[in-house]
């Protein structure tokens, strides 16, 4: 079935899907500005922060799922989407961080510093963001060529970023752990698949 002509449809479809939560958010913000509390509730800054946080987590896991899904469905076309989804995840996290700085602590450096140092869930979030930042910056072909084998090694930080994001979420939540359980299950399945891959490829190699 596979043609030699590159098929951009899956990538395009994914891009549209991954943009949808952002488009919806723009709509909510428009509602909110037209009439306060109508789009994002009585605490719009908090509502926005939580919305972006949830989608950051989901996009991160989606990006992490691309490779296994590609393997499972023997769908090489998806390989071209991995970088894009990684950048989508980074964009949502960056917006989440921006919302936190501008709307939540209202650019008060004192509050920011206090949060960075004293709140472990913020520390975990920042560490996760830094990991993603490094990956996003080095995601270009130029950096890939320059780094060679080290590029693959560097991009293994995703194995740290996802647990850091999960820790961030576990530490900030007080009760009601349903969605967190789903995220952990999702991550565990993806990890399991990778362990399985490594094992089978090893045993076929020897």
């Amino acid at each position: 079935m596979a043609k030699t002509r590159p098929n951009n449809t899956p990538k395009l479809a994914l891009a549209v899907l991954a943009s949808a939560p952002f488009a919806w958010l723009v709509y909510l913000i428009a509602l909110e500005i037209a009439q306060p509390t109508s789009g994002l509730g009585p605490e719009p800054a908090e509502g926005l922060l939580h919305y972006l946080g949830e989608w950051s987590m989901i996009m991160l896991l989606v990006a992490f799922s691309i490779t296994p899904v590609r393997r499972m469905f023997k769908q090489p076309l998806l390989a071209r989407s991995r970088r894009m989804m990684g950048l989508f995840a980074f964009a949502y996290v960056a917006l989440h961080l921006l919302a936190y700085i501008v709307l939540y602590v209202e650019s008060s450096w004192q509050l920011l510093l206090e949060d960075f140092v004293e709140r472990t869930y913020i520390t975990a979030g920042i560490a996760g963001f830094c990991g993603l930042l490094v990956m996003a910056v080095t995601s270009t072909m130029g950096w890939r060529r320059r780094l060679g084998q080290n590029w693959l090694r560097l991009h293994k930080v995703i194995y740290l970023v996802v647990p850091l994001a999960l820790l961030h979420l576990i530490w900030l939540r007080k009760d009601g752990f349903g969605d967190i359980a789903l995220y952990i299950l999702w991550f565990a399945i993806l990890l399991g698949e990778r362990v399985y891959q490594v094992r089978t490829s090893r045993s076929t190699a020897t």
Partner: peptide, 23 residues
Amino acid sequence: VSHPRWSQASERRLPSTLFNTNR
């Protein structure tokens, strides 16, 4: 006395608006 996960020094009076948390 701060909550370990956030400061209690100030509060957000509801309703707040998007660009003003009404702290």
